[in-house]
Design a protein around this nucleic acid. Structure first.
Lengths: 146, 146
DNA sequence: TATTGTTATACTCTATAACTATA
DNA sequence: TATAGTTATAGAGTATAACAATA
């Protein structure tokens, strides 16, 4: 059986995949770039904040890998976040080539606010009951952890 | 209770929202830009293909609204998709200002392949059984259909 | 000789503003 | 006068290549 919206054959896994996409796309403009813009951040900068856990000190190289982007882009993203006092460059005690990136205290608060907005449940989820949400959560967690 | 990854308080709806995000982010690089690039398309061009249902003839203006972008960007996206023979501009019989965009025959096949790749179930879903996938699908569909 | 991060530069995507033609 | 689409141009974000410092 072919689906109208996609023109491809269906299966439960495919329908789930499609539904998740639909849920992500149910917001206009899409969540991620919208939140980034509202906070005055490049999309990459928001991804970087998401990556940086409070208390961590991450070499820039690792950020480039996590963000799947070029090192020169990390430099420019870090520059701007540092200028805004959200993160800071710290020397690595073991390797003087390396700079470790950490959230400032101010940055931790900023990040918390950013994550709140990023993960705010999509409106579509409001139609589900508490029990249904828990079922949904458990299924998704099983997929992710399993 | 605060979550380590986000630093914000938890609720079932929030946990679902987070899990869905995690599922989308579990692929590196992220699905949408990756598939677009593999097909030699701008992200907006892939969105446009997703919007264009086979057999439809959509005024460019409508595409701009659906893509949440400027009309001039639609012109440039349409230019390139038309050059590749994927879509075509057709005159509107009722309003000579309007150009209606439709998939070519070749374009319909291209779109089908693109949608196949776009909606290919994430690897994480493979850990779920058929029954669990159906439960997951039903919950997501209920949320989306309201 | 290889690696971390930076700089200078170029490219891609999208938006803004001015324009043509229709309504 | 307003609208559909185009053109020319500018901006933001990211990548490429050459470089300095360190390993």
């Amino acid at each position: 059986m072919a689906d109208v919206a996609t023109g491809i054959r269906s299966s439960p896994a495919l329908e789930v995949s499609q539904a998740i996409f639909e849920l992500m796309m149910s917001e206009h403009p899409p969540r991620f770039p919208r939140v980034a813009q509202e906070l005055g951040l490049a999309p990459g900068a928001l991804k970087m904040l998401q990556t940086l856990t409070p208390g961590e000190q991450v070499p820039m190289r690792h950020l480039a890998e996590a963000l799947f982007c070029d090192a020169s882009n990390v430099t420019s993203l870090v520059d701007r976040l540092e200028q805004r006092g959200i993160i800071e460059r710290r020397p690595d005690p073991d390797d003087r080539r390396v700079k470790r990136i950490a959230l400032t205290q101010e940055g931790e608060a900023f990040r918390a606010r950013a994550m709140e907005r990023l993960f705010e449940p999509p409106a579509a989820l409001r139609t589900l009951s508490e029990v249904e949400l828990e079922q949904l959560r458990d299924l998704l967690r099983k997929a992710l952890d399993g």
